[in-house]
């Protein structure tokens, strides 16, 4: 009997905890600092998560609620959180939504400096790059990659900061014969995904463009392999008529449908 009563009590407590945690996530999402404080006082878990792995700090930050963010940071909330659906870091979402003040608060708490540098360098916000460099110590590879991207994007102020921080000059670009580049041009299709990719050459550089998407210029690693680090894309031509595009866990085989 005592055992049953104990089980009932444990179940009830677990349900209450679930409620209070859900309330905390809702309050953080809305930036209701008073409620957030009260719920933490009532025992809500600072690192409770939505079904998508977002913590109270994550949802407050992605909605730009700086006071709530500061409170949760002061309570010791983890800043290195990546959601389980989009696999996006908290800082990444904050930057996408241009909550740069909140981004600075997160950076000030430290975290994975390599990842943070990659995230902030794309925004073109030199002060955020400065903040990451001041707080953390990005590795050489992260510095070099961000530096190369900044040069490519003509972000002079960011490039200068990264160079001062020790970024190496990028290696000379691999030169691919113009005839080889021309042989790749055309429109490619895949049976795995409803997307056409147009491959073309402009000013001596290879460009790719998915249907309805902006064009991008993958950098040659060799005559057959090209990469576009900002989108984590690698393209390998196995002939002038087909290539494999790798992005994350995707591995798509494209075949030329139209020659230009």
């Amino acid at each position: 009997m005592h055992r049953i009563a104990g089980l009932v009590l444990a179940t009830a407590l677990a349900l209450c905890a679930a409620d209070v945690n859900e309330e905390l996530l809702a309050a953080a999402r809305k930036g209701d600092l008073v409620a957030v404080k009260a719920l933490i006082e009532r025992g809500a878990a600072l690192e409770t998560k939505t079904p998508y792995g977002q913590t109270p700090l994550y949802v407050a930050a992605m909605n730009g609620h700086d006071e709530t963010v500061q409170f949760l940071l002061d309570k010791g909330a983890n800043t290195d959180v990546t959601d389980t659906f989009y696999k996006e870091s908290m800082l990444g979402f904050v930057l996408q939504r241009k909550h740069y003040g909140v981004a600075k608060m997160i950076i000030a708490k430290g975290g994975n400096a390599d990842k943070q540098l990659a995230d902030v360098a794309e925004t073109g916000q030199a002060d955020l790059v400065q903040a990451v460099l001041e707080k953390g110590k990005p590795g050489q590879a992260a510095l070099d990659s961000a530096y190369e991207a900044a040069i490519g994007d003509k972000q002079a102020a960011i490039a200068e900061l990264l160079k001062k921080a020790g970024a190496h000059e990028p290696a000379a670009a691999v030169q691919v014969d113009a005839k080889v580049l021309d042989s790749y041009t055309g429109t490619y299709k895949t049976e795995q995904f409803p997307l056409d990719i147009k491959v073309f050459v402009k000013e001596g550089k290879l460009y790719m463009q998915g249907t309805g998407q902006p064009e991008f210029a993958p950098k040659p690693k060799s005559a057959t392999v090209f990469e576009f680090p900002p989108a984590h894309i690698e393209v390998e031509f196995d002939s002038a008529a087909s290539f494999t595009l790798k992005q994350g866990s995707m591995n798509l085989k494209f075949k030329k449908a139209v020659t230009q």
């Binding site: 997307l195 056409d196 249907t211």
Partner: peptide, 20 residues
């Protein structure tokens, strides 16, 4: 969403064509 029309055999799912 980007205007690719794909036709399948309704009974089997075999793709018949895909066209922008």
């Amino acid at each position: 969403n980007n205007g690719i029309l794909t036709a399948y055999e309704a009974k089997t799912g075999v793709r018949v064509y895909q066209q922008r």
